[in-house]
Design a protein around this nucleic acid. Structure first.
Lengths: 204, 204
DNA sequence: TGCACTCCTGTACCGCCGGTAAAGTTTTCT
DNA sequence: AGAAAACTTTACCGGCGGTACAGGAGTGCA
């Protein structure tokens, strides 16, 4: 029972790295079993087909993603009582974490799967949608807290501001990969941070 | 000679749609020749291999992309002498164009190719990098023009602000695909527009 | 001790796909 | 009319996703 989960995790590790590097269609089961050190039959013992691998991959990724945000913004909340300060600290902590990744951000599975949507079934597309909605809910709650204390200088929707966090992260990942400049991602996040500070800064 | 280019364009059209929908690895040559109505040998007459197809695809995409930006921000420049107003008008025109796409944005080839980077050779990765650098140069020039007239309320780098345009576009594409809300992309662009207006708005 | 269950391996097979090779045919330009 | 361009036809190769099924090794427990 423990052994099985270990092998499964090894397959998922290899698959995640491969999918983020070459796309889902570009990742072969054969290369995964070579890297994991099992046989093809062993692979199909754990996953009925490639689509179920994708599902497991995405499920695990989203859980981990949520955990990271919980930690960072939970910690930020401990460091400041003020919701705006807490959010700004959270963005900074996140930027630092992204800056410390040795080879840059490996890529977002949600992004790779929704930009190759026709390669997956509806269940996966729905998981992707739910993930994006969870991001929205999380950050929209923070913006609403901020708006109860500070008046924004422009009337912007909390949901749209929340989506901006996801947008900057996803876009920053793409841009830093295209440019081959890993630092672009944390830099973009900090530019967004400046915008948020400006938005809620009281008029002089 | 004309006929050849026509067939080539038909293959590229089919390929672009398929790659943006399913990823490069998920797109088969067989499906392209069925849709185009030619034989497999006919395909290989036009493209030595799949990688050369990718190269031609990206080349055409980037040229078209540049043309669109030239048109939109050229037109914006005609409508306003002030560089800030021109840029804000350009963003609005772009948001309107994106809003009018019937099935949402089909996706960005630069993004799909750099999130599947290991599936392509160095030449393509370099083309991707140059495309992102061209975006940066284009928008950085606009921000520098703006900064010669307006003083930003926060000291932000013109290059990083320029990258923010690409970031919001790329991230907006991902988010609107994940959420299955095409309107998110133009909305995000308009949120960014508000930030830019706020940044260069003279202190009251 | 033995049985069941989990966790695999081994073997054999299928059809699709990317790609190659080479000869032949039609269409288009000059 | 002739050359060059733009294909078609046929035949083939190895890799990959996937199926089927038999067998075996390690573990937990009755």
């Amino acid at each position: 029972m423990r052994k099985g989960e270990e092998t499964r995790a090894k397959i998922l590790d290899a698959a995640e790295a491969a999918v983020l590097a070459k796309g889902f269609g570009g990742t072969s089961i054969d290369e995964l079993i070579v890297e994991t050190g099992i046989t093809k039959s062993g692979f199909f013992y754990h996953f009925r087909d490639k689509n179920e691998l994708a599902k497991a991959l995405l499920e695990r990724y989203i859980e981990n993603d949520e955990r990271i945000y919980d930690e960072i913004f939970g910690r930020a909340r401990e460091l400041a009582d003020d919701p705006l300060q807490a959010f700004l600290i959270g963005l900074k902590l996140l930027a630092e974490l992204l800056s410390d990744l040795p080879n840059g951000h490996p890529g977002c599975l949600v992004a790779t799967m929704c930009t190759q949507e026709r390669a997956f079934d509806r269940e996966i597309q729905e998981m992707n949608r739910q993930a994006a909605l969870m991001w929205r809910r999380r950050f929209a709650a923070m913006f609403r807290d901020i708006m109860q204390v500070y008046r924004p200088r422009e009337a912007l929707d909390a949901d749209q501001l929340a989506d901006m966090v996801s947008t900057v992260l996803e876009g920053g990942i793409v841009l830093s990969k295209a440019l081959k400049e890993p630092q672009s991602l944390p830099d973009q996040l900090l530019v967004f941070r400046s915008f948020v500070r400006l938005l809620f800064q009281p008029a002089a």
